[in-house]
Design a protein around this nucleic acid. Sequence first.
DNA 1: CAGTCGTGGAA
DNA 2: TTTCCAAGACT
Length: 350
Amino acid sequence: MNYQYKNEFRHHLVDWFNREKRDLPWRRTSDPYKIWVSEIMLQQTRVDTVIPYYNRFLEKYPTMQSLAYAPQEELLKMWEGLGYYSRARNLQAGVKEVVEKYNAVVPDNRHDLSKLKGIGPYTAGAILSIAYNKPEHAVDGNVMRVLSRVLHIEEDIALPKTRKVFEEAVDMLIDKDYPGDFNQAIMDLGAMICTPTSPKCLLCPVRDYCIAFQEGDTEQLPIKSKKIKTKKVIYNIYVAVDKQGNYLIEKRPNEGLLANMWQFPMIEMTKETTKDAFEKQYNVQIENYLNNDFMKFKHIFSHLTWEMECYLVQVQQLNQLPANAHFLPIGKIRELPMSVPMLKILNILN
DNA sequence: CAGTCGTGGAA
DNA sequence: TTTCCAAGACT
């Protein structure tokens, strides 16, 4: 794209943004911390989903200091249902480092920003351009989709190395006077006009500069290869009550899927799984099956599917429980952070 | 690089 | 019902 067209492209794009931009909570602040929070929540997550979480989160943690030393249990509860829970842990670690190492001032350069937990190339660029008005690229899925069409880039956007191509494209096109608006404009364009399917090209402010529109192959771009197949895992889940009416609950390991979230005991069902696996693993004895198969459902994660069959059982504790397991009253359990499938079970208990 | 890490909504 | 996601980062 030649110099004159680049200028026109920028101005049409930013002018459109100023007319049509969505009124979003994080666009009502210039606080780098709040913009940081929004960018973390928005990773792989829809705007409509994020909004209520964002408002509640900043009401609870209005400053970096308030977040830096919050109990992780409370933090995870604030994140409950939003998914990708390591984001919450990394955000807190990053904020804590800014408080302690940078005197609670969010760094304004890519080098320092990128070293903070949870801040990758996109988020660094987003914070720098939106909060600090720095001409830094912020390449996300929207940017790759929009620019793959405008510039007719046919690289496979599923490959990590491809991001570099689009970063260079943004470096070439970005409006150095309004870098934050420019980056957000492409993202809004991708969300509202240049959508994955059925793009609204007739409403597009940069249609005249779009090679894919000229070629008539907008629907063929971007090119994306990778397809993920989800594996299936089958679990028996035991909602176990003792004589005092307390429920057996356990905390997941601090790494991996749903790290540090709480759950009802679950036993993976394989060919080798024995019938008394639950009793042996938790040192309890089932005295009574209160309700066989009182709930049966599946939950689909990004890369795997849980098929769950739930049992409501009365138990007696025989020996010491595993370290991360406890009998707790239902009221206490409702205060613990739990994954969506576990919440579905919890919600039908009285 | 390829796999891991959640969820709810849209086509 | 199935597929593909949506403002990615980490290992």
